[in-house]
Design a protein around this nucleic acid. Structure first.
Length: 616
DNA sequence: TTAGGGTTAG
């Protein structure tokens, strides 16, 4: 029973490998100790490796077993420990085990597994110096031409954003195999060159389901959601195996498009085909529901998940926040901490958003302070921006300004923009002008700086100010980002860009918009024309407002969706106040629920009211 | 007995 092949079939090895939970493994450990079986180094090694491989949270237990063992760990065990640590938030610990291999008294030496795992550690660490020395060690130990190590190196350089190095490694591979080609296509997509990724994919002589998944994910991750879904449909037509990894990318694409129907289809696919609801899949699913405006369903998925990680919690907390449930999001954050899950920087973005949408200034400030004091997380620019947003939305403009001035980092345009938005909300011209100037100093082409200030001037009927800004924008060459809204009807995503009349049903949409205008006017509605950038005639302005992309999408929803079906719109800008008022009225007149996801949050319109209660 | 592709923000 000494050969490894025979060992693999040993019932004790099988027993250890088949256990999935730490509890089960600990029970087996006790049994093996009682029978003295753990004296066998093979069993002991397998035990430690299984504990480590199943779940990174088991790692302290694996470490404990290694340190209290009578045996010197073998290469298999040590490689397993390197691999396990490469997937944690403390990847540098892999080097501890690598050094045990290098300094081993029984002449262990690293093999291709060691290096394949070690380069993944480097990928996680993203340190150029470390990566270079590990690459040098790969060459020194003669693994430069090992296909697995080559793929690992490409992966490592991709994570670090060094596409050039990926090309160099790939160029030296004589006959790249499937795994290596997939690593390369993944690397190109990761570094933003999806075109080349697709070229690698198209030129692959054989593609398996992993290669297809990598390509679908590549499109989804760089925001080319429609292409991701198209490729996924092609994948299905070609009869390629679909697994939970494919569905994660599909869900991510649906989330970005706000395509709830297709997202629901993906959920049904998971259930129909009994795919394993992994943490990643569950998180993608809950995130899809939350960002497509169905927070009830999102939380149902969340509570149904057996295993939750920091992604899952952050996603749920953020989902509640963007749906206006700030208090609930902060409560969920408390539960997360009670559950022993350590928050990360993204979690705090979600929590601060939660505080911001309901104006919990004090609580937000406490959470912000706890980042550094309790969790050792250094706040990033985004966190500072959210704090400005928190003060600003609550109307504490002076505090927001002094907060920016006391930042230890150089304030970015985002922080000033948050302040400018608040100035717009509270019609504060002085601070608004100051913030706008600061933004333009940092980003001369920032359209928001001009548009918002122009709105503030228009609020004050300062048409000269508006006209001067218009002139300045022309000279500098700033263009207002065109508004774009999408709406899904019968599984098809329709896109409306402001001013674009190319939709085949545009004439009908136009008629509907006129009908809406008549209805809302009867109710005594007066358009909030200050949302129009320039000083044009009142009637013309109203017309320009009538053609905002969100209104066009809502009108299209009214003519194309069956009665009673909610209208769901996803847009790229913040919803304008006028469209917001009109949407409220439409929800009442047409007895239709309207859900708009804007750049910042959700607005649920029902019976003439909006869930944001005017606070956004 | 270990080797690929996936989830949270901006």
């Amino acid at each position: 029973m000494s050969s490894l092949t025979n060992m693999a079939k040993h019932p004790t090895i099988s027993l250890i490998k088949s256990s999935t939970t730490l509890k089960e493994l600990k029970q087996i450990h006790t049994q093996l100790l009682v029978h003295g079986t753990l004296n066998n180094p093979h069993f002991h090694g397998q035990f430690i490796a299984t504990v480590a491989l199943h779940n990174p949270t088991n790692l302290p237990y694996s470490n404990h077993l290694i340190h209290h063992s009578l045996h010197y760990p073998n290469l298999f065990t040590l490689n397993s420990m390197i691999r396990a640590h490469s997937k944690t938030t403390t990847p540098h610990k892999s080097f501890f085990f690598y050094n045990i291999i290098l300094n081993s008294p029984n002449n262990l030496s690293p093999d291709n597994y060691t290096f394949n795992f070690l380069v993944r550690t480097c990928a996680q660490l993203m340190l150029h110096v470390t990566s270079s020395s590990v690459h040098a060690a790969v060459i020194k130990h003669g693994f430069e031409h090992d296909p697995h190590v080559q793929s690992g190196l490409i992966f490592m350089y991709a994570e670090m954003g060094c596409l050039k190095s990926c090309h160099q490694v790939f160029g030296r591979v004589q006959n790249p195999d499937l795994v290596c080609q997939t690593a390369m296509l993944h690397a190109c997509a990761k570094c933003g060159d999806v075109g080349f990724a697709r070229k690698v994919f198209d030129e692959m002589p054989h593609r398996d389901f992993v290669a297809w998944n990598a390509m679908v994910a590549g499109y989804a991750q760089c925001g080319r959601s429609r292409e991701a879904l198209e490729l996924f449909h092609l994948m299905q037509m070609e009869g390629v195996e679909v697994n939970e990894v494919s569905i994660v990318s599909v869900l991510s694409a649906c989330t970005h498009l706000g395509a709830l129907d297709q997202g629901r289809w993906a959920h049904a696919y998971v259930e129909r085909n009994k795919l394993r609801l992994t943490v990643t899949l569950g998180t993608a699913l809950l995130d899809m529901y939350a960002k497509c405006g169905n927070i009830g369903k999102a939380m149902e998925v969340f509570w149904g998940m057996k295993e939750k990680n920091v992604y899952t919690w952050s996603s749920a907390i953020g989902g509640l926040a963007i749906n206006g449930l700030g208090r609930e999001s902060v409560e969920l954050f408390s539960l997360m901490k009670k559950d022993g899950v350590h928050p990360n920087e993204v979690t705090f973005i979600s929590v601060l958003k939660g505080c911001s949408v309901v104006g919990m200034v004090e609580e937000g400030r406490n959470h912000f302070d706890s980042m550094r004091n309790l969790y050792g997380i250094e706040p990033q620019l985004e966190h500072y921006g959210l704090m400005v947003d928190l003060y600003g939305r609550a109307g504490h403009l002076e505090e927001a300004l002094s907060f920016i001035n006391s930042m230890p980092l150089k304030p970015h345009a985002g922080a000033w923009s948050a302040l400018l938005h608040a100035c717009r909300m509270y019609k504060n011209k002085e601070i608004g002008e100051f913030a706008s100037r600061k933004i333009v100093e940092l980003e001369a082409n920032n359209d928001g700086a001009y548009v918002l200030l122009s709105n503030i001037y228009a609020d004050h009927k300062n048409w000269e100010g508006v006209s001067n800004l218009r002139h300045k924008m022309k000279i500098v060459g700033v263009k207002k980002l065109p508004g774009c809204s999408v709406i899904e009807v019968d599984g098809e995503v329709h896109e409306f860009i402001v001013g674009d009349k190319s939709h085949p049903r545009y004439d009908e949409i136009e008629l509907k918009i006129e009908e809406i205008s008549r209805c809302v006017r009867l109710a005594g509605y007066v358009a909030l024309t200050s949302n129009v950038l320039f000083d044009i005639e009142e009637e013309e302005k109203e017309n320009a407002l009538g053609r905002h992309s969100e209104k066009v999408a809502i009108a299209f929803g009214l003519i194309s969706l069956k009665e009673g079906v909610p209208i769901r719109v996803v847009m790229n800008l913040r919803m304008c106040w006028d469209c917001h008022d009109v949407a409220k009225m439409v929800s009442k007149f047409y007895h239709r629920e309207i859900i708009v996801r804007d750049r910042n949050r959700f607005h649920h319109f029902k019976d003439g009211e909006c869930s944001c209660k005017g606070y956004w």
